[in-house]
Amino acid sequence: MSLVSLNEAEKVYIIHGVEENFRCDGRSRQDYRPLELEMDIVSNANGSARLRLANSDILVCVKVEIDTPLPEAPKDGKIEYFVDCSANATPAFEGRGGEHLAAELSRFLCLAHGPVFNLSKLCIVPGQSCWKLFVDVLILECGGNLFDAVSLAAKAALCNTSLPNIVGTYEDGQNIDLQISDDPFDTKPLEASDLPVLVSLCKIGNSYVADPTIEEEICGAGCIVVSVTPKGNVTAVLKKGAGSFMPDTLNEIIMSGSHIGILLNKALNETLIQDMSSNVCKQQYGFLK
């Protein structure tokens, strides 16, 4: 995925550090790196967020369009996830290099959000028209732990999304005419605060670390990604890497993933609420610092 290569001595140094619960950047095993979140920065999107987790830089934009619902679910809207790994992030993504990772990320986001996201909120006229959300994830810089960063950014962007209000619908035989409010501020927010976030736990030596850096990901035997809702429920689990786990270790990892996930969700929700209340005269920072 990246061009970082480590020699044996460096690997041993990292592994021993993790065993002593003291990682290379001074964190303990369960600690996260500082996160930076900016909301509503792309004016053409209905919702957007930029998240920086150490060196990982993610931009997520949500666009809303009108579509006809699927025949088997006439009362449901649609949501689709697209992940684009920009070649700027790492030269390994050049050409079709990032395609594999992008497909895996978008599929897993879809799986993780699926059991929680209530699609009936996106219904306009049952069987006739619904909202379709396009969640576009752009990876601008890659500094390890992409799954967590992408999920946090996606959740923030969906919380930031607002749907235009529909003033009226006119039926003309088979056709449905929708009248959408032409006031750009006449919108209703999309309820997305119960969406899960992903927590990656990388097994290094006999213990596991949260929020692994690229170097730690290389040393690790395997990684478990747990999708955790604010209530601590688990909606999806994925194993990354070529390692295998003892049953007890797996249970322990999922437990601690859920615990970290609750804290992470809480921190994100607090930031989002704070952002909403101080929306009036927000100081705009540069797009990429």
């Binding site: 059991p115 478990i224 955790v228 601590g232 429920n233 688990v234 909606t235 999806a236 194993k239 797996l250």
Partner: peptide
Amino acid sequence: QQITEFAQNGSMDV
């Protein structure tokens, strides 16, 4: 005694 793959989907109590 090794779990080589674990995949879960849905909503479950941890």
